[in-house]
């Protein structure tokens, strides 16, 4: 495992910005340092740390649950989104950093544990609260999810962003990492490019 950064001051700034204590300058700070994250890099990831990856993977598995076909977790949606954040969706990094922390905070408030430690029914209740924009927590109140997103409150906007990316990963070409072995395409009977 690779250590990204152990910088108390940086952690403090990220934390403060996540809580909105730096106001607009917090977002600017994020933008200026969009190359780096804090904490231990999750296995197989390029951007998300262990805790963020655990939360995102659990969300992905509720957004697309497993049945006789893979769920979001097994299909690799985490790696698809992480790869996107490390590259072509770099502008969403700080929405994820704050948003995933917001999901864990809401989970703590509602059911006393981090999201990934909740049972399935409780996880669904947390996500439904996000979807309705009713999830509680300092982070949602303080942090501005980027403008131009769909939805009203920060939690709603973040949830819409995650659904969008989860679906993009799960149903896209396997080369992007979120649709392992094209299982989702098999499931729906999508032939992609029949000539190939």
């Amino acid at each position: 495992m690779k250590l990204i950064r152990r910088d108390f001051f940086r952690r403090l700034l990220v934390r403060m910005a996540a809580l909105g204590l730096l106001g607009k300058s917090g977002n600017l700070y994020f933008l200026a340092h969009a190359q780096e994250n804090v904490g231990e890099l999750a296995e197989g990831c390029k951007f998300l740390n262990v805790s963020q990856a655990r939360t995102l993977e659990a969300i992905a598995d509720q957004v697309i649950p497993s049945d006789d076909f893979p769920g979001g977790k097994e299909a690799g949606v985490l790696y698809f989104i992480d790869n996107a954040l490390a590259g072509w969706r770099g502008q969403d990094r700080w929405d994820y950093v704050a948003g995933l922390e917001g999901v864990d905070e809401s989970s703590q408030i509602m059911f006393g544990s981090k999201f990934s430690d909740l049972d399935s029914d409780h996880q669904i209740k947390v996500l439904e609260a996000l979807e309705r924009g009713e999830a509680r927590g300092e982070i949602w109140r303080r942090f501005q999810i980027s403008e131009g997103r769909d939805g009203g409150s920060s939690s709603q906007r973040f949830f819409n962003l995650v659904i969008r990316h989860a679906m993009e990963g799960y149903y896209s070409h396997p080369k992007y990492g979120g649709n392992k072995d094209s299982k989702s395409w098999t499931m729906i009977g999508y032939v992609g490019a029949p000539r190939q």
Binding site: I64, D67, I124, M167, Y171, Y190
Partner: peptide, 20 residues
Amino acid sequence: PIRFARRRPPGAPRWGKAHK
């Protein structure tokens, strides 16, 4: 498939088991 994942009648779930 990606665009189809957003093609739902009003009120239909946007995620979860029923969406899949």
